[in-house]
Nucleic acid binder design. Structure first.
Length: 450
RNA sequence: GAGGCGUUGGUGUAGCGGUAACACUGGAGAAUGUGGAUCUCCCUUCGAGGGUUCAACUCCCUCACGCCUCCCCA
């Protein structure tokens, strides 16, 4: 047993899992781009005030779980616990509120929390997210939700349901909170200690209390949607209408609130429905909402905003649980072997054109018997062995052996790429720039009628 | 952050106050010199450190890590 362990709440993504994450990353960010949400990358740490300020009244609790960093004895910065505040900070810092609105971003980053770990709750975890600044229209809310719905469907997550609610704009929320404080104050002595505290801070979150008596009390509370303004209700109606138009199934959850004060109006969550996940309360795989007051809270102008964030680890786990197949193949498809124990450089030379052609090629560096090398190639998951240094492979020839079909063929060196290509796929080869003439770059044909 | 339960080779497990067992996996070698078969052997001192004891993996303490309930959940 190694003496060193990963820090508490953190873990390694071994190659297969990392490959799975990469798949999800590609799918997510490509979709984001299709929706017009380019990726933004912000630092892994921020001034802690960025998070405390955006957190609003719940800052004491948010601060408690913050993963703070001390550099050269100086505190003041924290590993980011979420993605929205840093993106808002970047939006302001770069004056993007002065550029054409709305401004849209996507992100995919590790996040950190100083909480005690539990299953699916690590101190370092990954989140993808979308942020949209400058659009107050309900269509932006709908787009964000539709994106998420489409993404989850795209990756194959079916055991999930969408819950939406509206908690009113900044003005309405003062009334909402006042009404709720008034209601819950009547039961002050019956609420358990934890929930009593919420009376002072974020009243809305009393709806999240687990204590049975608290839930009874909460059930009798005034409905949030009856307390918000007509404008709020109209906005929410537009959102739900839009969801219906798009054929997105949802349920309205009157008690759905979010943990953060900066949310306004629309809030939503995509919740896992598999019984395994619902035992200890809802586990959401993505959630978000509107945060019209956030940018101003952070010292900027009054800019509307709406966004979503999703837990990658939760999504990955849920997909596995559901039996969704993710291509996590990391093995070399081709293995280069040799019967000549001292031809290391020749093996490399043989591998190079195959690698350039796009095959995944690994080399057996050893002097072991061909027998052992073949066995090793199979154990490494290779589908094809390219063998040199044997009787048959003299005079510029090699053997290309299909390890699955257990058949082989002696090939000229010049034809080895073609022969290997008959058995294993070439992998897409990323480039710094797309090939010219690719679809989308072809100019419109001129039309004489124009 | 609170309470609880755990931590035995790569994985999953057994075990007991006297110096560790099983399955699979893995490594080396043998023999075939184009393969996952067979044979032999190997990889563990039981999370880390300390204590009690003639003697601890087995008892106690501390720490680390994991899981559960709670808190929290951006």
């Amino acid at each position: 047993m190694p003496t060193y362990q990963a820090p508490r709440g953190m873990r390694d993504l071994l190659p297969e899992e990392a490959a799975g994450f990469d798949r999800l990353l590609s799918v997510t960010l490509a979709r984001a781009l299709r929706y017009g949400y380019p990726r933004i990358v912000t630092p892994v740490v921020e001034d802690r005030e960025v998070f405390l300020r955006s957190a609003g009244e719940t800052s004491d609790t948010a601060g408690k779980e913050m993963f703070e960093v001390v550099l050269h004895g100086q505190p003041g910065i924290a590993l980011r616990p979420e993605g929205t505040a840093p993106v808002a900070r970047a939006y302001l810092e770069h004056g993007l509120h002065k550029t054409p609105q709305p401004v849209r971003f996507s992100y995919w980053e590790p996040m950190f929390r100083g909480q005690r770990p539990q299953k699916l709750r690590w101190r370092q975890f990954w989140q993808w997210g979308l942020e949209n600044f400058g659009a107050a229209e309900p269509a932006a809310d709908i787009e964000i939700i539709e994106f998420t719905n489409g993404l989850l469907a795209d990756v194959g997550l079916t055991d999930v349901e969408l819950k939406v609610n509206s908690i009113g704009d900044t003005t309405s929320r003062a009334k909402v909170k006042a009404a709720l404080v008034e209601y819950f104050s009547k039961y002050r002595d019956e609420l358990d200690a934890d929930c009593k505290e919420r009376l002072e801070g974020s009243v809305l979150r009393i709806f999240d209390c687990k204590n049975p008596r608290d839930r009874e009390i909460a059930a009798g509370a005034p409905k949030i949607r009856e307390l918000i303004s007509d404008e709020d209700r109209a906005h929410f109606a537009a959102v739900t209408d839009g969801l219906e138009r798009l054929g997105i199934r949802y349920t309205i959850d009157d008690r759905k609130v979010r943990g953060f004060d900066y949310y306004t109006r629309t809030v939503f969550e995509f919740i896992l429905t598999d019984p395994e996940f619902t035992q200890a309360g809802d586990i959401s795989v993505a959630g978000g909402g509107r945060y019209d007051g956030l940018v101003r809270t952070m010292g900027g102008p009054d800019v509307a905003g709406v966004g979503v964030a999703g837990g990658v680890d939760v999504l990955y786990f849920a997909l596995k649980k559901q039996g969704v197949k993710i291509d996590e193949s990391v093995n070399a498809d081709v293995y280069v072997l040799s019967g000549d124990p001292d031809d290391g450089a020749d093996r490399l030379q043989l591998a190079t054109p195959l690698r350039e052609a796009g095959f995944r090629v690994a080399i057996d560096y050893s002097k072991r018997s061909l027998d052992k090398q073949l066995e090793s190639a199979v154990k490494h998951g290779a589908k094809v062995a390219v063998i040199r240094g044997t009787e048959e492979s003299r005079g510029g020839k090699v053997i290309v052996r299909d390890l699955v079909a257990k058949s082989q063929r002696v090939t000229r060196l010049a034809a080895v790429v073609v022969e290997v290509g008959r058995h294993v796929p070439k992998r897409p080869r990323p480039r710094l720039i797309d090939e010219p003439g690719a679809a989308g770059e072809t100019p419109f044909l001129s039309d004489p009628r124009d």
